[in-house]
Write a protein that binds this DNA or RNA. Structure first.
Lengths: 145, 145
DNA sequence: CACTCTATGCAACTTGGTTGCATTAATGGG
DNA sequence: CCCATTAATGCAACCAAGTTGCATAGAGTG
C-alpha cells in the first residue's frame, strides 16, 4: 500500500478518538488524496486489490462521520459521498454547508460559507460556471413546535 | 375512489400532454391533496386498497416529472419525493429551488426563491425555525470547460 | 368500431445499505 | 512483553429503492 504519510494518517485517527486499524488507514489514505467527495463504490474502486469488506467500509465511513473526521453529502443520484472535514476549503461550522456539483463529471466540491453575515453568503467559486442552485433549510416546521 | 375534482385532474393531465389513465388519476389525486412532497412509498400507502403496481408508480412519477407536472426533491434519507409544480408557493423557474426540511417530522416544504436579485434570496418562512442550511450549486467545474 | 401506440403489470434483477453473529485484532494494565 | 478486554472485521443473509424486458390491456384517433 502506498500511504502518503502513514504517521499523519495514524495521528488523524487518534485525534478523532478512532482506533488505528488497517481498514481505517486504507480508507483514510484514499480520502486524504481526494479533493472531491467519494462514494462507497468510488472508494471500493480506489482500493482495487486492497479491498476491504463492504460492511466494514460502510461502518468505517459511519465511524469517521460520527467522529467528525468526515462529513457526508448526498450525490445527485442520492448516494452518500464522504469527504474529509480537514480540507482547508471546508466550512468551519458543522451546520452550514455548501457544495458545488459538476453536472458534467458529477464531482462534488466543498465550498466555504461565510456565516458572519446575517444571510450566509456563498462566494461564487472562481472558474466554476454556476447554472442552477438548490437551497435547503433545516429546522422545525409550524406543526412541530 | 374519492376524487376531489375529477375533471380538474383530467385537465391537468391533458394540459401537460399526458394520457388520462386510471393510475395517473389516482396518483395525481394523492399529489394535489398534499402540501408536502411525497415519496413512492408515501404514495403507495395513501393508495391503500387502491394500489397500483410499483413499476407503474415509478413510471407515472417519471412521466409527471418529465412533463413538468411535478418536480422531485431528494429527501434526507435520499429517496425521491415528488410535489406538484402548480402549488402557488412553487418557484416559477425550473433551475432555482429552495426547500424547507423539518428535522422533526421530516416533511419537505417548497419555498419561493426570489431570483430577481443578483444573489438569490430565500425569505425565511414565517413560523419555521431554521437551524441549518445546505446550499448546492450546479454547473461546470474547471476540469470540464 | 377498429387500429395503433402508449401505459400497465409482472417477474426478475441491480444497487445501496443494514443486521446478526462468530472471529480477529488493537490497546491498556500488569 | 504478554494477556485480557473490548471494539473492529468479515461473512451470510437480508431489506428497500429503483430498473429492465416483455406480454397484455386500454386510450385516443380516424
Amino acid at each position: 500500500m502506498i500511504m502518503k504519510n502513514e504517521s499523519y494518517l495514524r495521528e488523524l485517527l487518534q485525534e478523532h478518538g478512532l482506533k488505528v486499524t488497517l481498514a481505517r488507514m486504507k480508507v483514510l489514505d484514499v480520502l486524504v488524496s481526494s479533493p472531491v467527495a467519494l462514494s462507497h463504490s468510488d472508494i471500493t474502486h480506489r482500493l482495487e486489490g486492497q479491498e476491504i469488506d463492504k460492511v466494514t467500509l460502510y461502518r468505517t465511513l459511519g465511524a469517521f462521520t460520527e467522529k467528525k473526521l468526515t462529513h457526508k453529502v448526498a450525490s445527485k443520484d442520492r448516494n452518500w459521498l464522504y469527504a474529509l472535514h480537514i480540507h482547508e476549503n471546508e466550512p468551519a461550522v458543522d451546520h452550514d454547508h455548501a457544495h458545488f456539483v459538476c453536472d458534467s463529471c458529477e464531482k462534488i466540491y466543498c465550498l466555504p460559507v461565510n456565516t458572519e453575515e446575517q444571510t450566509p453568503v456563498i462566494p461564487t467559486p472562481v472558474n466554476f460556471i454556476v447554472t442552477s442552485r438548490e437551497y435547503r433549510l433545516h429546522g422545525m416546521c409550524p406543526d412541530c413546535h
